[in-house]
Amino acid sequence: MGELFHLEDVTKVYKMGEVEVRALDGVSFAIQRGEFLAIMGPSGSGKSTVMHLLGCLDRPTSGRMVLDGLDLLKASDNQLAEIRNAKIGFVFQQFNLLPRESALRNVETPAIYAGMKRSERVRRARELLERVGLGDRLFHFPSQLSGGERQRVAIARALMNDPAIVLADEPTGNLDTKTGEEILTLFRNLHKEGRTVVLVTHDRRVAEYASRILHMQDGRILKEERVN
């Protein structure tokens, strides 16, 4: 299996005017290839900051972060964009679909930035949408889809460039319990197929879908828990 992501003594300090806010205070952990990991904690615990760092949307203030052998602290903005494009698949609480593009086009977008050929891109996007059960909704716009359907489009989009890691930030936060369970089952299936999935949540029932839970509080990792 091996290590996919390695974080060592990572800190993140935000400057809010004169005041410094220590969002992360020396966090170290590793993510194994093919693992289903949940990062859990109340709001303000630093889990969103971890999510942004894991998603390469931001750089830590200090520490060491290595993804798949790449040192993220040394990466330029452009390199980070390339890493996000090739290695990260995002699923957000608010779905974050592009409102003016069809479901198909939304799924295609990461591949457009990767420079994939149009014919191949459309074929793959179609396949992924069919896999999440939306084969008959290809040309619907986000506003014409239900919450559960939107999140499925987002998952298909996250898988488009065959990422090393799927990052989900409260993916069921805006869904009812039943739809939420369907989405979580989808993530569990992805894990079973061998994908690395990281779930960020405040909800214990959601976190229990993972095989390992990191509990965070005040910018630190409080404890680690194995789930069966």
Partner: peptide, 16 residues
């Protein structure tokens, strides 16, 4: 702004 954020998360570079 949000659309730009989404596009960047999906791998759009500044140039894009």
């Amino acid at each position: 702004t949000r659309e730009i954020g989404i596009r960047k998360a999906l791998g759009a570079k500044r140039r894009d």
